[in-house]
Amino acid sequence: MELVVFYTLAAVAVSGALLMVTRKNPLAGALALVVSMAALAALFAMLHAEFVFLLQVLLYAGAIMVLIIFTIMLLNLSPQELKERPVGKLKGLVIVAATIVGFLGFIRVLFELPEGVPFVSPTFGNIEEVGALMLTSYLFPFEVISVLLLVAIVGVVILAKKVI
């Protein structure tokens, strides 16, 4: 039963990603990516990652994708600007070969992973537990992230201004 749910969600995630990469219109691609991210959120829920699941829905499928879709609509690209120029044959071949080599390296690592599914407590991954961990062991990185977000906000305001 669990396997069926996993394969369904995986199929949705992969087909959403493939649609995103292949669609010529970025708006269609963005909507496909939202579907893919929703499927990933469900996979996070299957992995007992309640906190990450909520963030995935709120932050990724919510905030970031809305920002991307707003930008696409704001740019209002004409069909002529969306015309795709294909990559050269040689370059394409090199890319595919490099990817296959990378994937084979990954498959080799896969055999060294442990079998079986370990038991986790019911509170594993809920907001309280992750929050406690984040504000104790990971307090310094947490503060650094807030500085980074502040720098990003200031940077965006400066970039978006027409005259500085």
């Binding site: 963030l55 990724y60 970031i64 038991f119 992750v130 990971y138």
Partner: peptide, 29 residues
């Protein structure tokens, strides 16, 4: 995180999402 029974991976995933948000804002600008 799930298969090593430690929640550190969840915290790192949170940091990656915060970075992605910052990157999205600047990249789109």
């Amino acid at each position: 995180a799930r298969y090593t029974q430690s929640m550190d991976g969840h915290v790192v995933a949170f940091f990656v999402m915060a970075l992605a948000a910052a990157e999205a804002a600047i990249g789109l600008a």
